[in-house]
Design a binder for these strands. Structure first.
Lengths: 204, 204
DNA sequence: GTCTATATCATGATAGAC
DNA sequence: GTCTATCATGATATAGAC
């Protein structure tokens, strides 16, 4: 409720909880660590949020909203496929360069009860949103502007090339043998690289 | 030591531990659950493996070996770039279609102490292995057979498009609005799709 | 709203009988 | 090697003083 100073106890707890849950996951997170990081008494966590579960839900729902928020609005815009692709890549890269733990956190926690998650979010509404992307692709194929390609695979390729380098950073680092500094430099180049790579792949 | 029947108590424990650790992660896994799944007494877990940490290490090291084993040998083969790419994609797809939790498990657990992992595995040897891939790419560029492309990005794109659909399955499912059945069908098509997509993207 | 003290419970680990 | 009983610890959650 306090959008101005955001230094309420409740907000301090949320900020600290976000950091700890993202880093350690639900099972690894400790209420004491969250309290310490927020510089508040542990009892207050239970005063503001009933339980660890409830506090976690607040953080998790925020994360899901941030991961799916932008993309849904972009997918249903009335713009060309190329513009859509560029916007999606820009939007995710902007988000992830500032909050690189987001996708790994969501993915890890979804996994612990993926069926429940799918039931909760696999709504007809989202189906329709993606249908707009399929239409865009089909229109470009029919116009001969791009090669025939399955829109689902195209979409998968796109978000895989953007998200995975954040999700799997330490693993990729080891495979290609680069240190943190060099890896971060590579990540900054990726926005334009991925745009170009996809355009090359779909040109007729 | 028993490669024939593999029904020793120790092997039963390892099999059960693998399932539980992959599903729940280190923090979420319970020794009791592993014992139940292996149909052995909980005390035996401590008899065969000193501690939960030690049991986990056995499972984790196996997982890392399986994730990096094939690729290192492929990268240093004396074959063309196209053959290398096809082999890497085939090798990972074969592995992951049978063991889809592998990359998410490794990634999640690495993340809890990524610095330690990087120090342990970021050896000169692996650097040299990847150097062979860089050479292959450079050779093809010089020969005019493919477009100029940064080998690191090419490699990232390749393993991202293969691994991420396994790692982020529930998330992608929700985004593109498909059920489990349809998703699995899409995954079976990916082997050839990704090969073609990459070839399109790098042709001159 | 904030803090301290404590209840309650679950888990990893060990000791010791068989 | 296997099993039972038990310990020791650490975590969430609650009660109640201020």
């Amino acid at each position: 409720m306090n959008n101005l100073s955001d230094h309420t106890t409740e907000q301090k707890i949320l900020d600290a909880a976000e950091v700890v849950f993202h880093e350690k996951g639900f099972d690894g997170a400790r209420m004491q660590e969250i309290a310490d990081k927020a510089s508040v008494n542990k009892g207050l966590l239970h005063y503001y949020f009933k339980s660890k579960d409830a506090l976690f839900d607040a953080i998790f729902n925020m994360a899901v909203k941030r991961m799916s928020g932008n993309i849904n609005s972009i997918l249903q815009m009335d713009i060309s496929l190329e513009e859509k692709i560029d916007l999606i890549i820009d939007s995710y890269m902007n988000l992830l360069l500032r909050n690189s733990s987001l996708p790994r956190f969501v993915i890890t926690e979804i996994n612990k009860d993926s069926e429940r998650f799918i039931k909760k979010y696999l709504s007809g509404e989202i189906n329709n949103v993606f249908a707009k992307f399929i239409d865009s692709v089909q229109k470009e194929i029919d116009a001969g502007k791009i090669k025939a390609i399955d829109p689902k695979h195209l979409f998968m390729n796109m978000i895989s090339m953007i998200l995975f380098p954040f999700v799997g950073k330490p693993m990729i680092q080891v495979l290609i043998g680069v240190d943190n500094n060099e890896y971060n430099k590579i990540m900054l180049e990726r926005r334009e690289h991925v745009k170009g790579f996809i355009k090359q792949a779909i040109r007729p």
